[in-house]
Design a protein around this nucleic acid. Structure first.
Lengths: 113, 113
DNA sequence: GTTGGTACCTTGCGCTGCAAGGTACCCTGT
DNA sequence: ACAGGGTACCTTGCAGCGCAAGGTACCAAC
């Protein structure tokens, strides 16, 4: 499928994970809310089929902890919050991303003004 | 393997392809030379096992054309040059990348100064 | 008690980067 | 002539991630 969005799809790889961490940095978040917030970003729009396996990986990596909480209306939600390792991973990503971004900008000639 | 480079590995996905196109934008290039030039970029270092399949995809996509040329010393080289479709794809990527980059910068808080 | 909304998760697929391995050309030295 | 090292091309099999599609379950309202 070469739909226009497929380019973004490839770009998301390896980045989405840390965007999700960043979204949980301030306050704990639950799955559907994360899908909604990512959906608000054209280039990060994704589906539950992507997000839940991703969240499971974050849990297995020890980067997030989860807590079940009642919902004001509807089934209970599983809330995700960063652990210390999660904060550390996010810091590491920020360095790695900055370096990567600058390199790509230089090579493809899209350096920010 | 969680070697430090594995983070970059994931980031490369979907970007490396267009960095290669950009490297061929001015002058035609051959495989080993591309590996060398990418190797000079810490965050883009890759191997022939990555590059040759990638170049084959670019050819199949009609983004590049190739020409065999004699080498001053050693076996002949296959040179790659962008087609019109290749230039178009690169232009499209520049827009997509810029948008993606800005979104990630905003969300993870790494906006360029 | 059925319908619609919310919320969680899994399965199977395709694509891409990688390590490792393989083939072949060319020059130099013996 | 031929062995060895450098150069150059390419393939195979594996692993990881995003995705579409499908599945389960809770809750409120009618």
């Amino acid at each position: 499928m070469d739909v226009p969005g497929s380019l973004s799809t490839a770009l998301r790889r390896g980045t989405l994970e840390f965007c999700v961490l960043a979204l949980m940095e301030q306050d704990e978040q639950y799955g559907v809310e994360l899908v909604r917030r990512l959906g608000a970003e054209r280039t990060l729009t994704t589906s539950e089929g992507t997000l839940y396996p991703l969240l499971a990986r974050l849990r297995r990596a020890g980067w997030v902890e989860t807590t079940w909480r009642e919902s004001p209306s509807g089934p209970p939600r599983r809330y995700y919050a960063l652990t210390q390792h999660g904060h550390q991973a996010l810091r590491h990503f920020r360095e790695e991303w900055t370096s990567f971004r600058d390199t790509v900008d230089r090579i493809v000639g899209t350096r920010a003004a």
